[in-house]
Every structure is written in structure tokens, then in C-alpha cells.
Nucleic acid binder design. Structure first.
Lengths: 372, 372
DNA sequence: CCGCGTAGCGCAAACGTGTGTGGTGGGGAG
DNA sequence: CTCCCCACCACACACGTTTGCGCTACGCGG
């Protein structure tokens, strides 16, 4: 065996043809240009020599790196691993590979990573980072770089995107709480620079209105980031305000977990004193102290759809811009309970059945906690 | 501005030198070969044109892709995101980028991904996949490909590796349970093809022996994979065997979570009826129903150290093979309690202080559950 | 029989960079 | 003054692949 990996010239020599012919014979696109006989001969030689085309040389020539950049805030956020897996699986099936970068919601870091990836000549970008109106999109558009937005939208430019229907999801959360009898419902809003934060707030307001509930601005706290700490801070802040509340809808599971800590510190019980509902249905969130009720969307599929959209953009150049929404799904768990003094039956909605195809983690049917 | 990105020839032309000279002037290694004056001129021209070296062309020439392959079982396992971040951060600082592949503990998939990455000419590998004696290592060694093992060892070949001291960690878990008064301690072993599974089992046996406790084979169940389901299956199996037990040390947090489900299904309370301790201190594991006691190791640092070792291998060719162990740390939480009938004081060990630098998730000091 | 279209293949030039080799000029030593 | 050495730079080629172009041979219609 050769210590040096077989090159196209070796294959060509073995098949007694010119390297150019070997190239055409091996490329499915151009195989029709060579006779069937020689194509077979070349293929045989390639197989015999264990030939593997050098993607670096190919990239240099074709100006296609078959890599895409994926920018996310932080891989440690349990929301992202399934999404990233969906992305990578889909991309890998098409011969692409993802370079992922964690921006930590830092604009400078984001800029650095973006430039670095552009220097590496990625064929496209999937942006799941939070900031809404930034210059990166303009640059990418100017450079004709395919970009797909994930879980965010952009009004300035029109980019393909795939995201969950956040307004609808927030409405569903509010509706659930309202049906349990809650009227004073608080909201911990996400960062308003993020489209998820803004649209979930809209959905919250809309849902309250449609149930004839007053939206008291005192019952809305604005978090600066999607973290447990921020959730705790906001919840504590809400508890200090006058009026009080019996339920809180958080814009995100992380923020909801923060509520747990804040309620704990205040000596309050969830769900007996305060019902809590989150958003995202992060892995393992169903195993928390009271299992967290939340709004689920198919994480893995979000990734595959984003990959699909990007591949279409890369392949066909510019077609129609597709904006895709995935339907959210209410998941009722033990962190919400009927308002004290109501009949138990008020809370007996059927919990949605877990039916995401690829999330391999155990979703054992968690029993609803009994209200007392 | 040029629609076409500036190339080295453009820079050379702007500085009135030959491209070769420009190349040498810009490369820190070879800068001494050109006069200081021209070096300055070239640098100025490069800056003015916004020149970014084309990494593809450079890779083709230098046979260095500045990419490394990272193979892990499954990104959805919460253990891995912090590790991967450590890896990527360290690699990025050195100008490298990680291509990560999820093997799903499937040998065929692993083989495919490995080949694909080799085809992409990665400069090295970080292998965190579980199977111990495989052919991939032999191939990599034969091809002189730098390889670093993460959380696994190989006796056949000598590869650099970084992992937690699994035996010591398992001993610490057993010691903790023994000090609480438990004598009948069960073990849910990890897959024995994985070095973690084997060494934690050794540590368990060793710990039991050093406390003068009998290691009954009936109290050891072997899981096929590190999953919640397998943990539940094994725990149920243990419960069905004669003799009984009052504490269980799982080889992994996932398996421990499975114990929760199994105990729940059997109508048993943790920690009142059975104490449970895990291994890894996965993110969010401190927020479970009873917060899970476990053995922690610095995840992020595991990643950075692996990256460091790999970079050394890549840079300096072959030096001494370093085998690095990170010290584990016992984390006592509410899932373990003194054996019923003992004095409370027996369980009053000080909980280890959380002091990992980079794990940004909230580790609120979880109060120990009171044994009754 | 000739011309032309076409299938099939070879030739060579790229893509952008790194590097071995050679050549030129100037300065210092003999 | 001559020779040599060294600093500095240009030349050319290589890395492995794709692709536009042109050449040859063959078949077929006029």
C-alpha cells in the first residue's frame, strides 16, 4: 500500500486515461461526457487504489468548501444540542459539515467568529444568535452568502427562516393559566432585542386580552438574558411589586427555573402558591422539582428544516424566500395548578403526548402533581 | 472595494514585490528572510486591501487543514456540551476549528464519520467515544495522525489522554455511602466496553473492600448503554433480586436518573428507602426531584486540556505521551441519607464547594434533605 | 467520396499559497 | 583589486482538482 494517499493522477494512470477524464468519470454530473466503458474502468481503478478525492483541492477549484457556519449563543443552553444535532445530521447527509461558534451573546465575539468563518470560506450561515438588527446580515447579503435564520426574524432584510410560532405558543400558555382560573398572571419577558423575546411578549399581551384580562405593566418584568439568574432576579422583582400574582408565564424555561429559585427563597410553593409555566421544553426539564409545564416545539426538526432551507439556498442560488413556522404544543405538568378555591376539574386538560421523532432522551410520562 | 476578495498576488502587486516575497513577509516564521522595509510595505498593502489569506489554498499547500475531528457519542448527553465548549474555545484560540461527529455508540456510524473526517484531512482527532479496542486507533497510528483520547483509555496503543480518575471517584462515592452507615450497596455498572464503565466498577469493588464490605455479585447490574432507560431497567432488575439493598451507586448520572424512575415505579422513596449517587454532575442534575448526589469533575477543563494535548501533538510531532487525570470531587446532595436508625451526625460531611471556573449554570447551594 | 456533426478524450490553465533554487548586488576580507 | 559571502528577492513549480477548449476518429447524409 502507498504511504501517500492515492491521488486522481494515480487513478488516471492506473486506468490509462488522462486525469481530466478520470475526474469526469468519477463525478456523477459529468459522467455522461465519457464512454461507459472508460467510466467503469476508472471507477474500478479508483476503488482498487482506495482513492478518496481531496476536498481541499476540490474546494480551491470549485470555491465550494462544503462547510457552513452555525452561530448560536451558547451550546451549554440545553435547548441547542438537539437543534444542532438536527442541523448536523441533515447537513452531513448532503455532504456538508457544520462549524459551530458560540457567541455568548457578545457582539464582538459574534463579529470575530463570523469573520473567521468567512475567511474559511463557508458556503453559508445558520444564525441562531439573538440580536435582531445587526450588520452581519447586511454583509452576508452584500456578499451573496446564503443565510438562514433560526428562531429569529429580521424585518430589514428578507432572509429565509425557521422558527416556532412564538406568539401562538405564548397565547397557549396564557390560555392554559386562564382556564385554571388565574387572572393575575405575570410575565417574565425575554430580551427584547431578540425576536423571541418580543414576539412572546406580544403573544402574552394578546392572550391576556383575548381572555378579557387586564395587562398590568407592573406584572411584566424584562430579563436582560435568557439565564436562570435573570429569571430569579425578575421573579424577585415581581414579588416585590404591589398587587401580587398567582401565576407567571416565563418567556423561556431558563427563566422559569429562575422563578423556582426565587419562589423558594421567598418561602413560596410552586404550584400551590404560584403556578409557573415556561417555554421550550428543554431536555430534562420534566424532571425538575415540580415538573415544569411548558410550551414545546420540535427541536431536532427545527435544525433539520433550517439545514434543508440552507441547502436549498446554496444549491439553487436565489429562489423564493421561505419563512417557516413550526407549531408549538402545550405540555401540562405539575408546575401549574388551579387557582386555590376552584374545583379540581378546571385543571383537567389532557397533557399533550410527546411525539418528537428524534429526541432520544427519556420522556417518561410525568404525573401531574396533585393540587391541595 | 473589490467584489473579488484580495489575493496574495494583489498584495504583492500593490507592494511592487513578487508574490513569494509577499508570502514570506506576511508569515511570521519567514519574515526574517525579507528586509524589514519591504516587510513593512507588504504588511501595509495587505492591510489596505483587506487581505485575508485563503485557508483552503494554504491547506492544499501545507497539508494542514487547521481542523480537528471530535467524536463523541451524543451531543444530547448533557455531559458533553461543556466539554465541547472547552475544546472549541481552546482550539479556536490556536486558529483551529472542530468538526464534531455524533457516533450514537454505533460502530458503523463511527467508522463512517471517521473516514469522512479523514477525507477532509483533519489534522488530528479527539476521541471521546466509548468503545475501547477498535481499529480506528490502529489506523490513526499507522497514518501518523495525532489522536487524543478523552475519558477513555487504550491499553493496546499508547495515546495521550485526559480523563477523570474514575476509580478514585467511584471509591469516593462508596466511601460516602459507607460513612452514612450503608452496608448493602448496589452498583449499576456502565458498559464494560467503555473504559469508564470498567474502571468505575473497579473503583466500586475496591471501595467496598477497603470498607470491609462484601461485594455481592447479585448487587451489580450491568447496563448496556449510558441511558436513563438502561438505568431504570438495571435498577428494577436489582430490586427483583434477593437480599435487597439500601443504597445504589450508579456509574453515571443518566443511570442514576433511571434509578429515580425505577424506585418511583416500585413505590420506593429516595433517599428515605434507598440512597442514590451518580457520577459526572451533569448540568441541571442538582435540580432534580431529590437533588442528585454525584461525583463531579471539571467538564470544561477536560475539553481545554484535551485540546491542549492535541495541539502539542500536532505542533511538535511526537514527544512524550502524556496521560492526564483530573481529580474528581464528591458532591453531596439530597439523594443520599443516613441509613435509617443511625444517628443524624453520621451523615454530616461537608459538601464540597462548587468551584469550577467556567460552568455558567446556576449551582445554588442545595440544602441537604433531612433524613427521617 | 467528401464534408460535417458529434462522441470521447487529452491538453493546459487555472484556484491561491508555500518553498526550494538560483541570481543579483553590495560589502568586507585577503 | 579580486574574490567570496551573504542578504535579499524573483522565478518557477507544486499541492490535487475542475473545466474550457481543441483535437481525433467515426458515422452518416448528401
Amino acid at each position: 500500500m502507498p504511504d501517500r494517499p492515492a491521488t486522481l493522477r494515480d487513478v488516471a494512470a492506473a486506468a490509462r486515461v488522462h486525469p481530466a477524464t478520470a475526474s469526469r468519470a468519477l463525478n456523477p454530473e459529468t459522467r455522461i461526457l465519457v464512454s461507459e466503458d472508460t467510466a467503469r474502468r476508472v471507477s474500478a481503478a479508483a476503488a482498487r487504489l482506495g482513492y478518496r478525492p481531496n476536498p481541499v483541492a476540490r474546494s480551491l477549484r470549485t470555491r465550494r468548501s462544503h462547510t457552513v457556519g452555525v452561530l448560536i449563543p451558547d451550546l451549554n443552553n440545553p435547548l441547542f444540542p438537539p437543534i444542532v444535532r438536527g442541523l448536523e445530521d441533515k447537513l452531513a447527509a448532503a455532504g456538508y459539515v457544520a462549524l459551530l461558534g458560540n457567541t455568548d451573546a457578545d457582539a464582538n465575539r459574534e463579529r470575530m467568529i463570523f469573520d473567521q468563518m468567512r475567511a474559511r470560506h463557508v458556503d453559508g450561515f445558520v444564525l441562531a444568535t439573538a440580536t435582531m438588527h445587526d450588520q452581519l446580515l447586511a454583509e452576508a447579503a452584500a456578499a451573496d452568502l446564503p443565510v438562514v435564520l433560526m428562531n429569529r426574524l429580521s424585518q430589514d432584510y428578507s432572509f429565509p427562516s425557521v422558527s416556532v410560532d412564538n406568539e401562538q405558543g405564548a397565547r397557549m400558555a396564557v390560555t392554559h393559566l386562564a382556564r385554571l382560573g388565574h387572572t393575575r398572571i405575570a410575565h417574565i419577558a425575554g430580551p427584547q432585542e431578540a425576536s423571541t423575546g418580543a414576539s412572546r411578549l406580544r403573544g402574552f399581551r394578546d392572550g391576556m386580552a383575548s381572555h378579557g384580562l387586564e395587562v398590568n405593566e407592573d406584572l411584566i418584568a424584562y430579563s436582560a438574558r435568557y439565564t436562570v439568574e435573570e429569571g430569579a432576579r425578575c421573579c424577585t422583582e415581581l414579588l416585590a411589586r404591589p398587587g401580587g400574582f398567582t401565576a407567571v408565564a416565563a418567556a423561556n424555561d431558563m427563566l422559569a427555573v429562575g422563578c423556582y429559585t426565587a419562589l423558594d427563597d421567598a418561602g413560596l410553593q410552586c404550584p400551590d402558591d404560584v403556578s409557573v409555566i415556561g417555554f421550550n421544553d428543554m431536555p430534562f426539564i420534566d424532571r425538575l422539582k415540580p415538573p415544569l409545564a411548558t410550551v414545546r416545539f420540535p427541536h431536532y426538526q427545527l435544525g433539520t428544516e433550517a439545514a434543508q432551507l440552507l441547502l436549498e439556498r446554496i444549491g439553487e442560488g436565489d429562489g423564493p424566500v421561505k419563512i417557516m413556522y413550526l407549531a408549538p404544543e402545550l405540555v401540562v405538568r405539575g408546575s401549574t395548578a388551579p387557582l386555590a378555591g376552584l374545583t379540581r376539574a378546571a385543571g383537567q386538560e389532557a397533557a399533550a403526548q410527546p411525539s418528537n421523532p428524534p429526541v432520544p432522551l427519556d420522556h417518561a410520562p410525568s404525573r401531574r402533581a396533585r393540587g391541595r
